[in-house]
Design a protein around this nucleic acid. Sequence first.
DNA 1: GGGGTGACGCGTC
DNA 2: CGACGCGCCACCC
Length: 115
Amino acid sequence: MNENLAEKIYRAVRLIPSGKVATYSQIAALAGNCNLRRYVGNVLHQNPDNTITPCHRVVNAKGYCSGSFAFGGPLVQQEKLEAEGVAFTNGHVDMERFCINGDDFEAMSLEMKDN
DNA sequence: GGGGTGACGCGTC
DNA sequence: CGACGCGCCACCC
């Protein structure tokens, strides 16, 4: 039933469509409140398994990776995103083209709720 | 029960 | 335009 926010956050991250990226605020919003954005980073840092949790699709509002220690290297995140079709501009994700749209957000929210 | 933490976001200077 | 600080909430000790 009521899972911890961590579970919701992980689920939201997994719902991010391939080839797109979501911001911590978006994940936090899907998890419950955009105010939880701080906690999103906190939870993702725990990231028990990056193979099932594509945390590499999660970037900050600027489209940059966390900058901190990632599941094997910050460069790996960019590599994975590029492999999924996410283009990088000047080292940052092109948010205007790859950030999830309202439709994607809505679909994710539906899956979050239905699941 | 209280305090500290955190892969952020945004306003303001 | 760039840099700094503050604020937000849930989980862990």
